[in-house]
Design a binder for these strands. Sequence first.
DNA 1: CGCCTGGTGAAAGTAAGTTTCACCCGTGGC
DNA 2: GCCACGGGTGAAACTTACTTTCACCAGGCG
Lengths: 304, 304
Amino acid sequence: MAKSPKISASQEPGGLIVHISGLLPSLSPAEQRVARLVVSDPAAAARRTITDLATAAETSEATVIRFCRSVGMDGYPQLRIRLAAEAARRIEPPDARVVGGDIPPGADLAQIIATIAFNDARAVEETAEQLDPAVCEQVVEAISGAGRIDIYGAGASGFVASDFQQKLHRIGRIAFYFPDVHTALTSAALLGRGDVAIGISHTGTTSDVIEVLEQARTRGAVTVALTNFPRSPITDVADFVLTTAARETTYRSGATASRLAQLTVVDCLFVGVAARNRARARKALEATAEAVQSHRVGANRRRA
Amino acid sequence: MAKSPKISASQEPGGLIVHISGLLPSLSPAEQRVARLVVSDPAAAARRTITDLATAAETSEATVIRFCRSVGMDGYPQLRIRLAAEAARRIEPPDARVVGGDIPPGADLAQIIATIAFNDARAVEETAEQLDPAVCEQVVEAISGAGRIDIYGAGASGFVASDFQQKLHRIGRIAFYFPDVHTALTSAALLGRGDVAIGISHTGTTSDVIEVLEQARTRGAVTVALTNFPRSPITDVADFVLTTAARETTYRSGATASRLAQLTVVDCLFVGVAARNRARARKALEATAEAVQSHRVGANRRRA
DNA sequence: CGCCTGGTGAAAGTAAGTTTCACCCGTGGC
DNA sequence: GCCACGGGTGAAACTTACTTTCACCAGGCG
């Protein structure tokens, strides 16, 4: 027997609180006391037990339940979780970060962390957005069919080059990385048709890398450039150009955003190559994972 | 009372879910089943009763309670409302990317790129959210005042260690990185009070790194661990623990997300240290930037 | 005055959450 | 190979939270 008018609040999309305050006047005195508590601090109410809330509203648990039904809930637990959800939603996202912004001199560490993370995440996202899948596809194709892959990079980009080399190696592709220009040049001279040379340079102006890539191209290898600047010198010696999208304000954040963007691109290429031959790649990965197993200590459990 | 090591989750600022996935490997099998259910659909879990959830996880209510305690909650009701809040906060991204999900076999490169970028960006953001500024501050403090800083890391984490070393070096701090265990051990043995040793290990189980960190600690150095798993063995030998929040499904994405997360943390520490002495750091950075200038080719202009 | 009616809380009842405890199973010492 | 040990587990006992029932008390009305 529907004694209650059934206010249809069974699923209020965005405003349980609003809904409650709307029907506040139609509630009985005791229920109103409950309603006011709930509306004034939903988060706190969500944390309370029914007895607690009843006491705070100077009424009985029974009334609280009646209140729940009056506003369209099944019972107290449901009200509780809806309240928690509602309260959480209201907390404004702390969106005031400036993209690519510098870090203010007086900033505390929490601010620094937020700013860095925001910019880093941004760089990754934006890089992915502007990456041309068609070009990636061709690069993946070239790598997959390559007899040998040489990867060049200096300084910070050297880490990325090295990382890429290691990744490709792990799935059984023959890849090299040279930290030193002379060795790199020597290697490039030995490349030929069907081989691939990849040059990584954030600015696109690192002469060492350009030089080596040029050499590789002369020998008939497919050349790939990974840089942040689509019109930089390195693109002149590359058959394919992949770009990152880090808006780095010079050095302040340790140039990490550009590194992350580069790594993301490398990862995409890697997964693309691995996906070309799932079975083989997986097998290779498992084998390598197993190899380091003996260097891991017992389970990842509670301390003794 | 305090049987549990108290993982401080009592108030995770932005990421209960993240927190849980971090602890996942340190949980017992039955608890892991519960954790997986919760992580995969927090909103649904919040709606369930404890008995319901226990049944779904094919375990007993007792285990669910144990799980609640393991992740730092008081009991099931608290978990429930926190879950509801968490679920509400994340305005679901329009795309149906599976977080931490595998890449479907038939995926084209565009999909692969989107998925990878999404997960990578996510790892960075979530890592920042759960980073404890207070701990960072202490680590920054230690690094700033250190006579010498040793950084250890094996395999993939080695790149990060190396990157960190380079960064600190660039702002004039005396930092070392050792790719080889023996050298690292030797170095650790020479550390003393006032020095800092930093160990990086994604899984937190790399015995080489743990061993070296332990040695450093014995010698009186301040030890810092950077890992994805707050209860892994490496945390036993660290004075300060910093965690990343990459929910990597093993190898598929080349473990890049965890790398990015680590780099982000490193970057935060770096900027923190640099901020302590702006003038000096800036000067050092400018000097080093100038040093590589001669290896850059002409302006970043259009091709000739 | 007596009957109805809506609002209320006490108390009874049910379901949810929590604790206890015995069992199992793998580990490591003897 | 045996046995003690300790962690992981679920059944059952237990406690607390939630829900229902019901009797009571106003106030309104015939």
